[in-house]
Amino acid sequence: MAHGRTLGAVVLGAIALGLALPAIAGPTERVRESLFRRQVGEAAGPPLARYVSEQGRVFILDRSQPIPMLKFEDSPEVWALQPSPAPRGDLIYKNDLGEPVLRATRLGGYTLFTDTRPSGEAVSLIGGASPLRLMGLSPQALGERLLQASVRSGRAARRPVIFEAEATPASAALIADAATVVSLAFLKMAGRDKDRVHLSRVARVQFTSGNAVSATLGNGVLQVVVAPSRGMAGRPSSDKLERLLRSAK
């Protein structure tokens, strides 16, 4: 009888242990999958959301498309980001100059890098957001956008700056966005005494479309080639244009 009771206790203990193990292993396996089975180039957290930094800057991060996009609420510019692996399994999102803009941890935390906080500042999730997409544009609307960018750039440079474009229905919206970005580069440079002098080298801005993004400056003409197949990533950023204008002879 004692032997039977002992054997029964062992069997019941084994059954209890067997029933308990899946309850413990389930969450553990899910955590392990989230930490170690994530593909390179992916980050935890919602693919589309609004965030706020410690200094109060609000931005949208859109990872719902092949090329991640970021837009600050206080600026019309959308930044195309390139993710690259970092230590501890983190990801660094860089701009088209290869400079870090955002760091993502495996657990979904983000650090924002700015000119005022180059060492980074933590950000917090606010909520949902609308996707960052280009909308179709008519020839008349494109002409108006080019004229607006021309006026803003001319005021910044303190001389007339003519904007021209060879556009198609597929490239019109992207060229309009690129014109806005060029004017932002002019405005930022005009606000710095050491950079304002470089704006006098530009008398005309010409936009065309192609397979690759590029920007060159020669004989007073800033030529910008946009790549419609890349969506909003198919034009140079204002930072890249600033570097070009500063380095031009």
Rank of each mutant, 00 (worst) to 15 (best):
R106S: 12
L125A: 10
A179Y: 10
L142E: 11
L241I: 12
P131M: 04
S75F: 07
G120W: 09
L199W: 00
R246Q: 13
D193A: 15
T105C: 06
D177S: 15
A203E: 13
A227Q: 00
R159N: 08
G191S: 14
I162T: 13
A203I: 09
G191P: 05
R32I: 07
Q223L: 11
L19C: 12
P68T: 05
T28C: 07
G98P: 02
D74H: 09
K188V: 12
A185P: 07
K71G: 00
A86Y: 11
G220H: 10
S53M: 07
P236H: 11
R30S: 09
A86K: 09
W79N: 05
G26A: 15
V221E: 05
M232D: 00
Q140R: 14
P131A: 06
D96P: 02
D74F: 06
F59Q: 00
V11R: 13
E77C: 04
L174N: 07
T168N: 09
S183N: 03
E33F: 10
I60Q: 04
L61M: 08
M69W: 01
T111C: 03
D239M: 04
A20L: 12
L35T: 07
D115A: 13
S237P: 10
G41S: 02
P228D: 00
Y110L: 14
S153H: 05
V205C: 02
G218S: 15
P46N: 06
E77K: 05
L125F: 15
V151E: 13
S183G: 01
E144K: 14
F59K: 01
R133M: 01
E42C: 01
A44Y: 09
P66Q: 13
G136W: 00
E99R: 15
P228G: 00
P68F: 01
G89A: 07
L21R: 07
G109Q: 14
G56D: 08
P160I: 05
R5G: 08
P68E: 01
A203W: 07
A104I: 02
T28L: 15
P27I: 10
K240S: 15
R196C: 01
R235Q: 10
L70E: 00
